[in-house]
């Protein structure tokens, strides 16, 4: 059962200042309406994982670990490997995160990351078949939110894709008796795309990209688009309770694509910060 949560208390002065600044096109942290916070990342920092990425977006920090194991393909897709995305909002990331199994916020986050990767066909699932209908690779993507400073979605999608890019598969093959054997070969996971998600915060019909924690607490609602490399849209999600006018949805979609192109060019390579 999904239950109304208490809205964080935002000081009225802060809210007023935020609105005043927004109508002049500025934000409380002096960013422009279409400006992202600093993005930096490191890949491969978890040696025991098959792929990993630690990414910060402003004060938000997300660690994604990828593990590739053997498993069974789904019955309806016998010629494909399996992708599993899970997300944990760790209690050390925020006082509002509680210990225990993933709650609805964590599940919604995991499912959005999953859709962004799956619908853009980023992981080449067909290349993960070993024996059709019997054995395949299962790619487990675990999103660990370490520090919650707003805009978990964009940070998680980026970190997940960087971790997948960094993933190496230990190859298994069938021997002459038809038995599955681990080989010495290691291959990079084959990726087809590089999806980027862009999240907008909306207060009083004013929208801006990449809401910080303070802004998030004052926002009425959020809208996220995920774009493929070629500019198609592969996932959309409106989050939280507020309302959006249809015309603004289209404006955000267009602005989002501009930002997605910028961010994806920042994300090339193995280790980087955009300062």
């Amino acid at each position: 059962m999904s239950v109304t949560r208490e809205k964080p208390v935002v000081s009225k002065i802060l809210q007023k200042n935020m609105l005043e600044l927004l109508s002049n096109g500025i934000r409380i942290d002096k960013r422009k309406l279409d400006e992202y916070r600093k993005i930096s990342y490191q890949v491969g920092i978890i040696e025991k994982a098959d792929g990993s990425a630690l990414l910060s977006l402003g004060e938000t920090m997300v660690l994604v670990g990828v593990k590739v194991e053997l498993g069974q393909p789904f019955e309806d897709t016998p010629d494909q490997g399996v992708l599993v995305v899970n997300a944990e909002l760790l209690p050390l990331a925020s006082q509002t995160f509680e210990p225990g199994p993933p709650d609805e916020r964590a599940i919604a986050l995991a499912r959005y990351v999953d859709r962004s990767i799956r619908e853009s066909n980023t992981v080449d699932l067909k290349s993960l078949t070993i024996v059709q209908g019997k054995i395949c690779y299962v790619v487990y993507v675990d999103v660990y939110v370490l520090d919650y400073g707003g805009n978990l979605v964009d940070a998680s999608v980026l970190a997940a894709v960087k971790a997948l890019e960094n993933t190496k598969i230990k190859k298994y093959e069938l021997d002459e008796n038809g038995k599955i054997m681990k080989t010495e070969k290691v291959e990079s996971l084959k990726l087809n795309d590089f999806p980027v998600s862009i999240t907008f915060g909306i207060i009083n019909n004013k929208y801006f990209v990449d809401p910080s924690l303070e802004e998030e607490q004052a926002c009425d609602t959020f809208l996220t688009f995920t774009y493929t490399k070629s500019g198609n849209i592969c996932a959309v999600m409106k989050n939280e309770q507020g309302l959006i006018a249809p015309a603004q949805v289209i404006e955000m979609m267009e602005l989002g694509w501009k930002k997605a192109k910028e961010i994806s060019s920042l994300m090339l390579g193995g280790q980087k910060g955009n300062d």
Binding site: R115, E119, T228, I233, V236, K238, I244
Partner: peptide, 21 residues
Amino acid sequence: GKISLLQMDGLMTQEEFKQAL
């Protein structure tokens, strides 16, 4: 005149998204 739920999964061009909305 407002939207209270919006999700999408699959692949659409931006033109198609406008038409879909």
